[in-house]
């Protein structure tokens, strides 16, 4: 095969139909256009997609989901790699390393090497990991573990609750204030503001989430949890996608956690699963409340474009939850 290929940033108006058709061919299922537009075009942090086209048809893509991250007193962009694909016709007959790598290299050069993104990361499948490690400078940050709380042992009733925990729609000001109370203890964190939450949870095209907030007697939001409805990973598992609780708010944390477990149980769940960095005090606090640590089928990989950042920094300082992923 010796056909002229063009590798370039996505032109949504021109490429969308063709991209979604190739998507269906590669993954064997349709991707709803609204869901694609939401993830790729509506992200408040921008769009990160490179495509390869042949005779106007999209035959490969390397894509990412960018996030605004607060790090070292400044705003940067971390981008999660997602949904890379190569049309089956273009996997054959090409010299190694192949079209996948050609598109990925152009993508990384554009957004990382010559662009402003500080880190690209993801949880690649095994085949993508092997190629990424060999050709694209992927490196392992850690093998993920998750915290799991079985619901057969119900949480103890809280005799004198100090907080009112209920479903909330936090205002942008509340969200930003709560995140700022948390992020002082974090070296790097995606900015949890109204735009991010609206895009990530409220407007999600495929999944539904329940936001539970703990308010004190004065109505101040002191903790926020995001629970995904429906099964995740295994039947009966419910994903706790975000956990925004200042470390000093122990009572709010306890009451919020109890509410999360009750909500998961009412949703038919048998256990709750969450991803919280091991260095966080919450990682230990939740264990003290009956959560156990299990291995997860995910390897966090990253490529850093800023020499001041490396994988050890990410491992030890980056606040990362399922909210920062497209996993749940």
């Amino acid at each position: 095969m010796n056909r002229a290929l063009e590798i370039r940033p996505l032109d949504a108006a021109r490429d969308a139909d063709s991209l979604l058709a190739t998507w269906a061919t590669v993954f064997g299922r349709e991707r709803r256009r609204a869901e694609w537009e939401h993830q790729v075009l509506a992200n408040p942090a921008g769009t990160r997609v490179f495509v390869a086209t042949c005779d106007g048809r999209v035959v490969a893509q390397y894509a990412g989901v960018p996030t605004r991250v607060w790090i070292d007193g400044a705003e940067r962009v971390f981008t999660q790699s997602v949904d890379s694909l190569v049309h089956p016709e273009f996997r054959k007959g090409l010299k190694r390393p192949g079209l996948f790598v050609d598109v990925a290299r152009a993508y990384f050069d554009h957004y990382g090497v010559h662009g402003s993104d500080a880190v690209h990361y993801g949880w690649p499948l095994e085949a993508a990991w092997r190629i990424g490690k060999r050709f694209l400078e992927y490196e392992c940050v850690r093998e993920e573990v998750v915290l799991v709380r079985d619901l057969d042992a119900a949480p103890a009733e809280i005799s004198a609750p100090e907080f009112t925990v209920q479903e909330v729609v936090p205002t942008g000001e509340e969200l930003r204030w709560l995140w700022e109370r948390c992020c002082g203890a974090w070296g790097a964190s995606a900015i949890r503001d109204a735009a991010f939450y609206a895009w990530r949870f409220a407007g999600h095209a495929d999944a539904a989430y329940r936001l539970l907030g703990a308010r004190d007697a004065g109505g101040t939001l002191c903790g926020l949890a995001v629970l995904r409805r429906g099964d995740w990973l295994t039947p009966g598992s419910r994903a706790l996608c975000d956990w925004l609780v200042p470390r000093v708010e122990l009572a709010a944390s306890r009451e919020l956690e109890a509410a999360v477990l009750r909500a998961a149980e009412r949703d038919g769940g048998h256990r709750v699963v969450t991803l919280i960095p091991e260095w966080s005090p919450h990682f230990l606090t939740l264990q003290e409340r009956g959560w156990c640590v299990h291995p997860a089928p995910y390897r966090l990989a990253a490529r850093c474009f800023d020499q001041r950042l490396d994988h050890l920094f990410l491992r030890e300082h980056w606040w990362l939850t399922l909210a920062d992923s497209d996993l749940a």
Partner: peptide, 23 residues
């Protein structure tokens, strides 16, 4: 290793999982 049987069994017995400084 997190995948071995005793990693969970020891947690059930009262161990907690902590990070270390090691990679």
């Amino acid at each position: 290793p997190p995948w071995c049987e005793d990693f969970l069994a020891l947690q059930v017995a009262g161990f907690r999982v902590h990070p270390t400084s090691r990679v």
